[in-house]
Design a protein around this nucleic acid. Structure first.
Lengths: 221, 221
DNA sequence: CAATAATGTTACAGATCGGTAACATCCGGT
DNA sequence: ACCGGATGTTACCGATCTGTAACATTATTG
């Protein structure tokens, strides 16, 4: 029963892997189930035995994407255990790789654009995923000692989301090229402000202080 | 020859207006030319006499979108003539309205997602538009006395782009909800840093100083 | 009014799409 | 060896899509 290494990969997994690749390359609406099945080395009938409809396959692919994201977050945790600020910098680095290195943006965000119907079943998965990503980021900021952790998480969320979509429309030389500088500056600004506020707190690790922005006053939000 | 008010609107304009509306609501690939023609009160044959193909219609629609953006920028200029910082704040306000008020994001960015083929003719229009928007923003920042105007323009570009796409995937209560606060804080930080740098300069208008971030040092970029 | 351009109507071609039925084949476990 | 479940194969349905042909009608303009 052991889940074999990869050589005898079951059709279901090959279909999902191939579908993700083709959806990403040509868009969800730009590729048909017949092409997916053929490219996955199987046929349409087997595809429909595993996934009742194309929408089901789309949802399965998005859940697979979410699984990959989980693995990346787990990688942060293991690579920089107990150092949330280092994990935050790792998040910036990986985000930059995804944003500028890949010309097709975020699968989840792209799916939200393509599946325009507001009651499409995949929208639940997408919204749940994006909310989860933001919450994880906020938790990380909180653990890193950031006072206004939620605001920093929202700012970084907008920046990474913008970088990935701007990469597609404005190109790799556009605003997304400076994502790392901008994100690091924002993090440094929030961290510095957090340091000033809590003068006697032993938890924070290394400040690194390589930023160019500093938090000032909180208006009222 | 006068361009009539709207009652005898020519089929070409009705088609573009209707196509933009339907493309926005259902996605470009989610609506057919037959539906567009019928909804525009005409027929497919007339549509194909004005636009040789659906791709041509798409391009015409995107150019129309760009025209609307031109009008908005012209509105900034007339509403706050000679006050670039006020124009910048107006840009933030309008951007927030577009981002959180409308659940379907930017037509240009959405088209870039849907038209995945890297050689699609519409991609030229999209990239040109996005580059133009960034350059306009950078020029405005420069006129407002911002020292690192290009970096501020890129930051604001990522933020607005992220807000509009995050609105679709994470919802109106997500990170996009704080776009105004974040954008204003960033602008204030850059403006304050610019004030510190140029102590003897008479050009700048009112600082407003309602931000919570302050620019520190420029690393090397 | 007459001539001409623009638009409407109908029908159709060719392709692709999502999804299903019926039947053949293969492969693993008892 | 056998049997049952998973998979492969082929053919098909109905719908929809982009795009075109041929012809009728209307509107504009001299």
């Amino acid at each position: 029963m052991e889940t074999c290494g990869f050589v005898p990969m079951r059709p279901r997994d090959r279909i999902i892997r191939t579908a993700r690749e083709l959806f990403r390359k040509h868009g969800i609406r730009g590729v048909g189930v017949d092409t997916i099945a053929e490219q996955a080395g199987t046929n349409k009938m087997t595809l429909y035995r595993h996934f009742g409809s194309k929408d089901d396959l789309i949802i399965a692919c998005l859940r697979d994407v979410a699984g990959d994201a989980d693995a990346i977050w787990a990688g942060f945790e293991t690579a920089h255990a107990g150092d949330p600020m280092a994990q935050l910098h790792a998040w910036v680095r990986v985000g930059a790789e995804c944003a500028v290195g890949d010309a097709r943006g975020c699968d989840m965000a792209n799916a939200a654009v393509e599946l325009a119907e507001s009651d499409h079943p995949a929208r639940h998965v997408i919204e749940e995923f994006k909310t989860g990503q933001r919450d994880r980021l906020a938790k990380l900021c909180r653990e890193a000692g950031i006072v206004k952790a939620d605001l920093l998480a929202d700012t970084l969320s907008l920046l990474i989301e913008g970088a990935r979509v701007s990469r597609q429309s404005a190109g790799a030389e556009g605003p997304c090229a400076h994502f790392i500088s901008i994100a690091e500056a924002v993090i440094a600004a929030f961290a510095q402000e957090s340091d000033k506020r809590s003068l006697h707190r032993p938890t924070r690790a290394k400040t690194k202080s390589r930023g160019h922005l500093r938090v000032l006053t909180s208006p009222r939000a």
